[in-house]
Design a protein around this nucleic acid. Structure first.
Lengths: 239, 239
DNA sequence: TGATGTGAACCCATTCACAGCC
DNA sequence: GGCTGTGAATGGGTTCACATCA
């Protein structure tokens, strides 16, 4: 048995990714929990405990962690410190990632000041904007510079991740600037589908999206059953 | 045939949900696109066009929209205005949802000022904090009040959705306050698993999570193959 | 003709259940 | 005995392909 398992590494556009997307999305959650447990000087944790804290079930925790390697101890559990490092390594967090923010508005400031970002290995090396009135102001420990300085900033600090916090109308411009500067991945807060070269990763965070889903559930809870569609279709109560 | 299809409405904890979670999560995306198309006076759109704009494939668009009802026209496509209203209705967005924000920090301010929220039918009726120095300041058109006024605020405006933008350490307190005030759904920005009664919906937005996933992909792209696990397991290059 | 709507097939993710090891 | 690691079973979501209808 060995099928076509080529290597342990991941490849950016590999047809066969090692860690399933769904599991990958949960690794940061486990990581956060492990770091917290570490702060509380907890040395060991079982999949049951981790599952409880993560709000998932134990089998999923074990399956997810098994993609990383055999890091648990049967009959005991996982060593918190060790597993923390393994997940960090897997996520590429064993290095400080320099990040630039495009858009010095409220959200840009919030991201720049967000301690959770710095705590988890990301370092804001620049905030740029094209609004002259914002340039020179201090945001999250750096001063805002003009968007034209982006390329210079990116090359100087070897930045490969950019965050777009501009209004939707300027998001594509921001993305173009980032791509021109040579960025490889973009976290986009603007409610816009960005058009970028195929080799640039974009992850979109839609701040209103979750609210809209909540409103669906709230509407349901309040007993406001959805209206019947307005065309000819009728609720088939009986055959 | 009629199984137990009771009605077209959804129920908060119904064992048989009408719209699959995955499709529900895409409705806000289609909605945003449709609204934009509407602004550009586009009258009709095919599943192909919508798919292109949403970054998914056409079959998925059709399947997703089919959960709402039969709103397309074969051989033609979907009527933008009509479909917009249908999705809004389905998401419960045919009403203005009052919302409160707990935490008047950077992120709270960003959310309160975020025009995308107001544009999509949400109305910030209050921002509360427990830091005396913030109370009275203006944020997004309302003045910050003390967290003790939460219950009053919620009852006065019949609020059922709350947003937590406090530091992680205070998030559980914030959630408790919201629950005590009678809120039904919570959007949580703090990187914390909240403990709430079973009938309260919580959706978590982890701002650092997406960054951590990006760093994984960046690490891969840069050719930094994942290290081999440090235990005895070796890459099985050949049988 | 051309695009929707939808069973059926497929594929990925979750869960189960237990062998294997501490 | 207890907990991990993992094949196998299950279930949900995606995609295919085509019947259907304007």
């Amino acid at each position: 048995m060995m099928h076509e398992v080529i290597a342990w590494g991941c490849m950016s556009e590999s047809p066969r990714r090692r860690i399933p997307e769904a599991a990958l999305g949960r690794l940061p959650i486990y990581l956060r929990i492990l770091v917290e447990l570490g702060h509380e000087n907890v040395a060991q944790a079982s999949s049951e405990q981790l599952a409880e804290l993560a709000g998932v079930n134990a089998a999923k925790v074990r399956k997810d962690l098994s993609y990383l390697g055999t890091y648990g101890t049967r009959g005991v559990g996982y060593e918190v410190q060790f597993l923390t490092v393994q997940i960090q390594r897997e996520l590429g967090l064993n290095q400080a990632w320099p990040v630039v923010i495009v858009g010095a508005g409220n959200l840009g400031q919030a991201m720049a000041n967000f301690t959770g970002i710095a705590e988890r290995g990301f370092h804001i090396v620049g905030v740029v904007d094209k609004d002259e009135s914002k340039i020179g102001t201090q945001v999250g420990g750096v001063s805002v510079t003009h968007v034209d300085s982006l390329t210079q900033l990116v090359q100087l600090h070897k930045v490969s991740i950019g965050i777009i916090t501009t209004p939707a109308a300027h998001a594509q411009d921001a993305a173009d600037s980032l791509v021109r500067a040579g960025i490889g991945s973009i976290m986009n807060f603007a409610p816009t589908i960005l058009s970028v070269p195929r080799d640039v990763h974009v992850r979109k965070v839609d701040l209103a999206l979750e609210l809209q889903i909540l409103s669906y559930y709230e509407d349901c809870r309040n007993g406001n059953l959805r209206d019947v569609p307005t065309d000819g279709r009728i609720d088939p109560v009986s055959a």
